[in-house]
Amino acid sequence: MSDTEHNQIRDAIQKAIDEHEVILFMKGTPEAPACGFSARTVAALQALQAEFAAVDILPDPRIRQELSTISQWPTIPQLFVKGELVGGCDIVVEMYESGELAQALGLEHDSASAPEPPAGEPQPLARGLTQVENRLG
């Protein structure tokens, strides 16, 4: 792998971050998340009816490598808003529950009618996935 190729991937990722106000790097797609953490992050965004771009990092391992170099964040998913890393699954779900995510996304958030959070107390990943699939269904 040449440095040039790595730089091209890094530039493409940076361009995607710059060009999309809300962009999620995830495993799989919003319709078919390939990991419970990505699924819960998508569910939080969809619960707020947020519009977001999504990039599946699985097809090419270099995407994840270069993304983590840019963000200095080791895990997937990663949510960027206005060019800034907001967080991974834990932070996004915590911000969703507190209403901060709606604020960060510039969306109205009526706490009285807020839907159930995508993930509550500690529970096996599989159950979290089932919840998300129900939500998507």
């Binding site: 953490f37 200095q72 080791p74 895990t75 932070i91 915590e94």
Partner: peptide, 26 residues
């Protein structure tokens, strides 16, 4: 929160995503 979580992830470096597949944090 980002900075707080990074401090914890830094403890494990490359092990996160490798030997430790996932470390969920509060």
């Amino acid at each position: 929160r980002i900075a707080q979580h990074k401090l914890v992830y830094e403890v494990f470096g490359q092990e996160i995503g490798g030997r430790i597949h996932a470390l969920s944090l509060k």
